[in-house]
Design a protein around this nucleic acid. Structure first.
Lengths: 337, 337
DNA sequence: ATACGTTTTGAGAGCGCTCCCATAATATTA
DNA sequence: TAATATTATGGGAGCGCTCTCAAAACGTAT
């Protein structure tokens, strides 16, 4: 039903090859011919069949985005939508399309195999994986270009991340400088690099300032609001005067627990989060947090990936993006540098 | 680099055709032969090239998902991620992949043309569009199977929706029965069908119970938290004793405004929302709201779409899914039917 | 007018698969 | 055993495109 190159060729009185040249902006076409052909293409709203093109070029102009299922629970976290927005925008800009896979754990391996071998995508962006995720190995073994969002401890892997350790340290130091003494931490999953690194940053800050680590002031969550709430409840009996949460969503949960315990933020307990998702400027009180350039990370990842795909660029290895401590009211300091 | 049918054929001592039969589960293959071939396929992790297959079959096993840009601001609303999750799950189940387009307004028309003509997808799910969105027309003119999430006033369009009018009515009646007299409404964008219908439901409830419509108690938002906040501020001076918000996100904004005005929920002002997004059971107080089966809607939409694609099923027209009034504390009634 | 370079165009092959049809192998019946 | 029906397999064409290579058209200098 749809038109083919051959149809357009007939309609404009040239050969299939010439039409192909026009479509692919080949310069060896007489200006006049090009115009004539382009006219017909426009008239008929012609679009070349990408499957056919892909078959011969071996390229599809499609980027795969894999969000492992372990995380898709977290889909309630605005982090992923924002990331997706950045990814999508940059793809559109480069004339690529986005193929999305929310990998359910049971199907994950099977899905990966398919993605890698069925020629549907030119490259893959993998978001926020566990350290031990088998997908990395599969990806490395295949020749598929890929980039991870979130650093990975393996060698020879392209990734893009923020410096979670420094950022966690920065947030904790901020609380320390404000004079808080019993700073609790609601840490993220420790098999996630981000969760791990942020915790390390917390530890480093304590150590640098000669504060002892009090294990009872550390509770692990899984990045959900609920887990932040539960963690805070647990921490409460050890009377922290501040808490650093490894994600804004968990910070929200912590604030809820504090409110329920009739503790005032920041007077009784100060709170600092991580991410700066859209809601965080509107919590009561507004949340002090570490801002990650989430959307930009999505865009940048695609940028790097497409560069690898098109120019065969090797090992960008790690790209680290800057974070910023956004000081609002929940930490009890209306201004700091 | 990747293997082809021909390779597998050689490796297992049969012809290309037979391998194809094995892969496509054609029953005319001797059991023994099938096993032999399957073995080789498994060994080499072979996946047939989908572009090549698509070229000949005319089908890609890919479903497009279009989320118009006007809405992608709303991507901070968990509605879309949830929807996407439902869509993705059902696609995986049917062995389809998902191609995601977050349509930026400038590119929208251009993007649509491409989607429709370049043979990348077999069908399209369009989420939450404006009534006057030109995409509908383009879609109807093409032969591409598609389904809208959210009813559309046009004829001959497949869609899937909840009964927003009845649901809005139900929510408003609930407040009415609890004895509230000055029920305000924070309504959604009126060029969105959902926003429009929910408002009509509110109006109907008032009318049925012989309550006058007080125009000053109605304020329009755009489904964002911020707009709910602003709307509530505006409404406050007319002293409502309850408010029906056309989305939970706007209800959150309204609650924030109420809190700032030192009004107690539900004692001073009761609040009812719409959507029942994950956070709504954890607001303070927990939000009474109309639950939409968001994830299921995504799944169902894909189900219907694939049915159209594969069986050429005509006009399902509208599929309406049930909503449920979830009574929590923000309306001042801990129990109602 | 002839020869040469340069730009512009067309024809053919082939990407990896499915599908149709013909042939080969096997089973069934006379 | 021959004839027929049935099942299993192979070969060829072709999906719509790109890419290489050869031919045509044009320009310019001899």
């Amino acid at each position: 039903m749809p038109l083919t190159l051959e149809d357009i060729a007939r309609l404009s009185g040239v050969s299939r090859s010439t039409v192909s040249r026009v479509i692919n902006a080949d310069m060896n076409v007489k200006h006049e011919t090009r115009q004539k052909v382009q006219q017909v293409i426009n008239n008929y709203n012609f679009q070349p069949n990408l499957a056919a093109r892909g078959l011969v070029t071996g390229r599809t102009n499609v980027v795969g985005v894999v969000i492992p299922a372990s995380v898709s629970l977290l889909f309630t976290d605005p982090y992923f939508p924002q990331l997706l927005q950045g990814i999508s925008a940059m793809c559109t800009k480069h004339d690529y399309s986005v193929m999305l896979w929310l990998a359910e754990p049971e199907y994950e391996q099977h899905m990966i195999t398919r993605i890698l071998h069925n020629g549907l995508v030119d490259g893959v962006v993998v978001a926020s994986i566990r350290m031990d995720d088998p997908i990395i190995q599969s990806l490395k073994e295949s020749k598929m270009p890929f980039i991870l969002i979130g650093r990975h401890p393996t060698e020879n892997v392209n990734y893009l991340d923020v410096d979670n350790l420094q950022s966690g340290r920065k947030a904790t130091l901020h609380l320390l400088r404000l004079g808080y003494k019993r700073i609790a931490a609601i840490i993220g999953l420790q098999n996630h690099v981000a969760g791990y690194d942020r915790y390390q940053g917390y530890l480093k800050a304590l150590q640098e300032t000669d504060h002892p680590l009090r294990p009872e002031l550390v509770a692990e969550g899984d990045f959900t609001e609920e887990s932040g709430y539960t963690a805070m409840k647990r921490l409460l009996k050890y009377r922290p005067d501040a808490v650093f949460a490894a994600s804004d969503t968990m910070a929200y949960g912590a604030m809820r627990a504090l409110r329920e315990a009739n503790l005032e933020i920041p007077k009784d307990v100060a709170v600092v989060g991580f991410d700066d998702i859209p809601g965080s400027s509107k919590t009561v009180p507004p949340l002090t947090t570490v801002r990650q350039p989430i959307t930009q990370m999505g865009s940048k990842a695609v940028d790097v990936l497409i560069n690898i795909i098109e120019n065969g660029t090797k090992s960008t290895e790690g790209v680290i993006m800057d974070t910023e401590l956004v000081v609002r009211e929940s930490c009890g300091a209306s201004n700091m540098d």
